[in-house]
């Protein structure tokens, strides 16, 4: 199931009228534990405004007076609301309660996927399609207006920022990356100069990476037919991949999980064709 097809549960920690406030320590423990488990929550009771309701299921937790939970429902029937008295229940007990409500509501279980995916800065993006042409995993696509977009973010390889390094405008961010400007830090002139000179992965390998892989594949075929030495082939591949890993800060496990050279070439050609078609269509409409 695609991540965006799942529903979520919103927790409300209620300390307003009709409920007793939690101690500061208990409030912090409850809030931080819920956040660590991946839940979104709203703390209500003190001064200030919070985001309004939408169709998300609500679970309202509070130390309700006399243990009596309010009898409230959404007049439109659009928002499922459930109240839970937590007076005298420790944090573990509260977490168990929340988890059972989550399961019942069939809401998303969090933390099963590290949210690693490219985020496009459209202020910088020139729609050049380099990223679409580069990515072998079908992360990118175009919309009806032939604008580049991230379509399959769960296909992205965790900790791999390679596509951001081929973007000539530094328009691709990975907010969980360690360094700027890929992490979302402002792009400076110095960054742009660096981007221009930066690693052109293919140049480092002496030409177009896919041509190189194709060439290697041919050589390998001829060698294997003579030697049938799979361990040597693996060594060769590792040598090539080490260069790539250093050039693009690509995790070795991502490179080692790449498909065969033939499959890479096939996918690369497919991606290039997709990018060219999108560029042609974009030129026609502009």
């Amino acid at each position: 199931m695609s991540l965006k097809d799942q529903t979520t549960l919103r927790i409300v920690l209620y300390e307003g009228s009709g409920a007793q406030p939690l101690s500061t320590g208990d409030r912090f423990t409850a809030v931080s534990t819920l956040l660590e488990k991946g839940f979104a929550l709203t703390c209500v009771g003190g001064a200030g405004r919070v985001a309004g309701a939408d169709g998300t299921s609500l679970l309202v937790l509070g130390r309700f007076d006399g243990g009596r939970t309010p009898q409230v429902e959404d007049a439109n029937g659009a928002v499922p609301i459930r109240f839970q008295d937590i007076d005298g229940i420790d944090t573990h007990g509260v977490m168990d309660l929340v988890e059972s409500v989550r399961a019942e509501a069939k809401a998303a279980k969090h933390g099963e996927w590290k949210p690693w995916f490219p985020v496009i800065d459209y202020d910088r993006c020139t729609n050049c399609m380099q990223c679409l042409s580069f990515c072998l995993f079908g992360v990118y696509g175009v919309d009806e207006q032939q604008h580049i977009q991230v379509q399959n973010n769960d296909n992205c390889k965790t900790n791999c920022p390679a596509c951001s390094r081929v973007c000539p405008e530094a328009a691709i961010m990975f907010p969980k990356y360690k360094a700027g400007p890929i992490n979302g830090d402002a792009v400076s002139d110095a960054d742009l100069q660096r981007e221009k000179m930066k690693v052109d992965i293919s140049a480092l390998l002496g030409g177009d990476i896919y041509s190189l892989l194709r060439e290697r594949s041919e050589k390998a075929k001829s060698r294997f037919s003579k030697e049938r030495d799979s361990s040597k082939a693996l060594q060769e591949r590792q040598k090539c991949l080490t260069k790539l890993a250093q050039a693009g800060d690509i995790p070795p496990e991502v490179l080692m999980s790449l498909p065969s050279p033939e499959e890479i070439v096939r996918r690369a050609e497919e991606a290039k064709a997709k990018a060219q078609a999108a560029l042609l269509a974009a030129n026609r409409t502009s």
Binding site: T42, C43, V44, A47, W113, F117, D154
Partner: peptide, 13 residues
């Protein structure tokens, strides 16, 4: 009063 989320990246994804 405040809203808190576990991870904006995950929500965006």
């Amino acid at each position: 009063a405040f809203d808190a989320v576990a991870d904006l990246c995950e929500m965006s994804a």
